[in-house]
Design a binder for these strands. Structure first.
Lengths: 346, 346
DNA sequence: TTGTAAGCGTTATCAA
DNA sequence: TTGATAACGCTTACAA
């Protein structure tokens, strides 16, 4: 690999001149400048990464730690972060902790497991001297990720930072629950059942809170019997559908699309049809929601916006020394209802 | 950040002793060894990445260039590559070219566009001095990626390398087409329609070739009228379904699940049912295939195996100086038929 | 406008 | 068994 020294020899100038041309730091005569650039281009010179990193403080690299690349939320978020950083001339480096591969469903709230892979990941990024770290969670919860005295700018993406020192970018679950409930009410529904995720989950809690607000505003009593808890998976949707239908609800709001698909399974088996015999709404706008029949009305999660927003904050912090105001920096990105054919007007 | 020099001072030894303890290269008295390790642990010393990289030739990093992280094939392949490398104590660094984001569907065969982002990506990895490069394509085709005189071990994943100097790990499309056709024949079908992808696509061509072989073996004439070309997207499945059904085929083999979903759309509209009125088979085993009703019988693409296999070859090349035998190194990983409810016995 | 030289943190070579 | 020192490629302060 060609070095500045070799270029200097070829051009008959000193190596600092080469460096100066390349970085445009000092006045260099136009003639030598052209000559140098010509040789640089011809030889395909690339600065040695390590030498540069060693010399400078900044690396212009932003480290991304993903809990799990396989989670459906991760690729679109990371894609946008990378795109934004690229536009701003920052490089990114991705560390995939592969939590699911390592521990299946058992890691969410096991601090020990998380820390055992997180700490090496952070150390690795620090030794690479990244300018900032973005933690991309697999789902919303409080994550205790960075110590309070962490001296590298860091952002929590798609989850809440335990420490108020770090900004979080999350979806607005409460508004999401509120909006969908209002939508169902607008469609004439007053007996609305819910198939929620696990009860201890933040998404679950906030969405139900939003629902309560919408019901209250319309003076519709909140009926706890109509709130059933699943486990985010399809069979639990199937399982809870029966009871809810027996209760006589006219609409079922599933807190994710997968459980909504489970409800569809139940309906299919009992010769019923979403949007005809009963109304179904989902959450996530996963690919499958467009393939269910009738297509599922659902709440789209704005992964792109989450990625962009979080990258924006990071770059702003880096370039303008933008400081996170303790406690105030939780950016909530709203979801968007995608109206399809599974909710009928009654 | 603490350095070897500081540790040396703390221990009252020279810095080369520290280095030797850390790398276990030379005999060091047990006493000093313990003392050094103690201080290292207490201070949380981390070797400076850049200094190390500058000094050593090897970095133990494998670079992954992804055409597009958003392609559904990419995350599972990359996940397995990362897992395998991690097990073998190699680090990975991922560059996402984001081809789709940049050019939508227009980049597949536009060498100029590809090279304009590929070359910087390769240069970046070379300047990081990665030990090897794995190119993860978004779909199968011949890719002209590395020059013949490329001196870093490189592997083409999920596509064919233009140059025989580099190993390729691909799916066995011909066998996939063959297997599914045989399966349909076993189920009693002799009039089998195909909704293929674009005609110039390698997946398309090889799968149809496999089908021909299976038909020939059973002495069933190949009827070109029953081969229709779509564009891999759902509406094209819908579009081609009609003609094929009019032709009186008893089964339709769709070369991806998305087009099979299009056929389902057509059936749904015409009050027909897959697995009852006609048999449908897909390809890919995308998530949706399990959600279609009746669930779609399809051919699963072994992303995990592709990832593992390619990573294995890379590590083997690196550690054993394993050399690619020109022309002979195309690893074909078989697909696996996932039998569901969309194909009936006749 | 250009060149010289120090220094970043590590490893490797050689000498002690 | 240990220590001094050169070298890796680059940036930058200072000298010319």
């Amino acid at each position: 690999m060609i070095t500045q020294k070799e270029i200097a020899e070829m051009c008959g100038v000193s190596i600092s001149t080469i460096s100066n041309v390349l970085n445009g730091k000092r006045k260099v005569s136009e003639a030598t400048r052209q000559r140098v650039l010509e040789v640089v281009r011809k030889t395909g010179y690339q600065p040695n990464y390590f030498a540069q990193g060693m010399r400078k403080q900044k690396t212009n690299i932003i480290g991304i730690i993903a809990e799990d690349l396989i989670q459906f939320s991760s690729p679109p978020i990371i894609e946008r972060i990378m795109a934004y950083c690229e536009d701003m001339h920052y490089r990114t480096i991705l560390i995939n902790m592969r939590m699911y591969d390592k521990w299946r469903d058992t890691w969410y709230d096991d601090e020990g497991k998380l820390q055992s892979v997180l700490q090496p990941a952070i150390r690795e990024l620090l030794s690479i001297k990244v300018d900032g770290i973005m933690y991309v969670a697999g789902h919303a919860r409080n994550v205790d990720c960075f110590p309070d005295d962490f001296d590298v700018p860091a952002i929590m993406v798609y989850a809440y930072s335990e420490s108020p020192k770090f900004a979080s970018v999350v979806i607005d679950d409460e508004k999401g629950g509120y909006d969908m409930t209002r939508y169902l009410i607008t469609k004439g529904h007053r007996k609305i059942g819910v198939i929620a995720g696990t009860a201890d989950n933040l998404h679950t809690q906030k969405r139900i809170l939003g629902m309560q607000k919408a019901l209250y505003e319309e003076q519709i009593p909140y009926n706890p019997d109509w709130i059933r808890y699943g486990d985010w998976k399809r069979p639990s949707g199937y399982r809870e559908a029966e009871g809810l239908i027996r209760e006589g609800v006219t609409a079922i709001f599933c807190l994710n699309d997968d459980m909504a698909a489970g409800v569809y399974d139940y309906l299919y088996e009992h010769d019923m049809k979403a949007g005809v015999d009963i109304s179904i709404a989902g959450y996530d706008n996963m690919e499958i929601s467009e393939y269910l029949k009738p297509a599922l009305t659902t709440n789209e999660i704005p992964f792109s916006e989450i990625g962009i927003k979080s990258a924006e904050i990071m770059i702003k912090t880096l370039t303008e020394g933008y400081e996170v105001k303790p406690g105030s920096e939780i950016i909530k990105v709203p979801c968007r209802i995608i109206e399809r054919d599974s909710v009928k007007q009654i």
